[in-house]
């Protein structure tokens, strides 16, 4: 008799559990407001990343086309993947020979976004930008020069 009642209780408990499951999915079906799909390329205008989002390394320039980088090379040393290459040159300023930045090369393809370069930069010359659409057809386009052509070191840092 025990196994007989067990047979039926199993049956009805099973059916009950199945209906509970159906209720959950059914309730979502009738509530289209719960839909979370983002239609990505169409929502480009409204899509905003958080300000700390590590999209790519950038070097901010002010409107006089000046940056903060002193070409000290700490970021290059700290980068685990060798994705930063600093090419410096020597300029004669006030009669003294000084090391200044020539090219700040950033290999986006090798970057793992660990953030050590930004963290260790003594003059806060580089930050992470929000751009995330990096897809290209060629690997070489992922090697970027961060300092704009003709840009120079900021005055107050130079002193």
């Amino acid at each position: 008799m025990n196994s007989f009642t067990k047979y039926f209780s199993d049956l009805f408990n099973g059916i009950h559990s199945l209906i509970t499951g159906l209720k959950v999915t059914g309730s979502y079906f009738v509530r289209p407001k719960e839909i979370v799909t983002q239609q990505y390329p169409e929502n480009r205008a409204t899509l905003k990343m958080f300000e700390r989002f590590k999209g790519e390394l950038t070097m901010p320039h002010n409107n006089l086309n000046e940056h903060d980088c002193t070409a000290c090379g700490i970021c290059e040393m700290n980068c685990p993947n060798g994705s930063i290459e600093i090419i410096s040159k020597f300029d004669v300023i006030d009669g003294k020979k000084k090391k200044v930045l020539d090219k700040y090369i950033y290999h986006l393809g090798m970057c793992t976004f660990c953030g050590l370069c930004v963290k260790t930069c003594p003059s806060d010359a580089i930050i992470f930008g929000q751009g995330f659409e990096h897809a290209t057809f060629e690997r070489t386009t992922l090697n970027k020069q961060l300092n704009k052509p003709g840009s120079v070191l900021k005055k107050e840092v130079k002193e």
Binding site: G26, F29, P32, I35, V36, T37, Q39
Partner: peptide
């Protein structure tokens, strides 16, 4: 389409 709505998606659009 129906499975998308069950799953809080839009489905093919």
């Amino acid at each position: 389409k129906i499975c998308a709505f069950f799953q809080c998606r839009l489905g093919p659009m």
